[in-house]
């Protein structure tokens, strides 16, 4: 069955709400508006305003309230409109949700799910377009997911809700309209990275909004006779180092694609692990394709120039292979 990423996410939330009375959705415009990205359209009519809870513009307050509700026995899904706005709630996520279990000597777990849109590509400029996944992936005590496929959009929410600790799900804003087949085996365990395309000459690592770009690049490379493997990191914390290393040991070359800025990026962490674990398996230094170190600009041509693009990935791979 062909569905959109948005519809896959909607189905996942619908299933969670229908199946567990402890689950509720809370955030800005999730109810009457139907969700900023229309993921929760129609939910308020079906589940009522108590469980599809519109909030004021109060990110710190309602993310904190989600933490408290999780402690109090509920299973909240808190939607934050974009990762840029989530900075207003960073204190509650980093100083409370992530540390509470440890700081209390194991007495209080926080089974909270926070969903937020991330990423550029819609000319929304420098306050609505950034990719700060790595900020969260830096923090022990939380789990960070980046569904990049229809299957993961459908499959990641249930295990996230079943997780006793805080889980942050990043949904790249450019993916909502992505359409594709929902395979029968969409269930996922949120424990491993995924090999999206097998290949032998180079490993291309990507996540979220960069995965379709990496897949497109791999297809173009195939046309040029280059056999690239594409790994979807999809679990940004903890990183699945085993799958990453296994791929590099096979191909001996690594390109890491990341919409975050190169300095201090998730791509930097992936490269560091490759170097630590597979240094002697490498035939060439690892390469990163990241966003330009600039606040994301408004003008279309400038925004496109700032972001990783399939052509840049293709060029990086060719250079790496001296092809």
């Amino acid at each position: 069955m062909k569905i959109s990423y948005r519809e896959a996410m909607r189905q996942a939330m619908h299933e969670a709400l229908a199946g567990d009375p402890r689950v509720f959705l809370m955030g800005e415009d999730v109810g009457k508006y139907g969700g900023t990205y229309a993921v929760s359209k129609g939910f308020i009519e079906e589940f009522g305003p108590e469980r599809i809870r519109d909030t004021p513009l109060s990110e710190l307050g309602f993310v904190g309230a989600g933490i408290g509700a999780a402690l109090g026995g509920m299973r909240p899904i808190v939607e934050v409109m974009t990762v840029n706005f989530s900075l207003l709630a960073l204190d509650q996520i980093v100083n409370t949700a992530a540390v509470l279990r440890h700081m209390s000597g194991g007495q209080f777990s926080v089974p909270l799910v926070v969903r937020m849109a991330t990423g550029a590509g819609r000319q929304l400029a420098a306050q609505h377009s950034h990719s700060l996944e790595n900020w969260y992936a830096h923090i022990p005590g939380i789990r960070v997911l980046a569904p990049a496929t229809i299957g993961d959009a459908r499959g990641m929410l249930a295990p996230a809700l079943a997780d006793p600790d805080p889980v942050i799900i990043f949904e790249h804003a450019q993916l909502y309209n992505l359409e594709g087949e929902l395979a029968d085996d969409w269930q996922c365990d949120i424990a491993r990275a995924a090999v999206r395309r097998e290949g032998s000459q180079v490993s291309v690592f990507a996540y979220g909004g960069c995965l379709p770009k990496a897949m497109q690049a791999a297809a173009e490379l195939a046309d040029a006779g280059i056999d690239a493997e594409v790994i979807d990191l999809r679990l940004l914390r903890p990183l699945d180092t085993e799958t990453i290393a296994a791929s590099v040991r096979k191909t001996h070359r690594a390109v890491v694609v990341d919409e975050g800025w190169k300095s201090g990026s998730l791509a930097a962490e992936v490269v560091a692990r490759i170097v630590e674990d597979c240094f002697y398996d490498l035939d060439a230094p690892p390469v990163r394709v990241c966003s330009a170190e600039v606040p994301i600009p408004y003008a279309r041509h400038m925004e496109e120039a700032a972001l990783p693009q399939p052509a840049k990935i293709v060029a990086a791979v060719k250079e790496l292979l001296n092809a």
Partner: peptide, 15 residues
């Protein structure tokens, strides 16, 4: 920092 937490605990109780 504890205040939003308290709001959430109360929300859970109410729900």
């Amino acid at each position: 920092g504890g205040l939003p937490l308290a709001v959430g605990l109360a929300l859970a109780d109410k729900m």
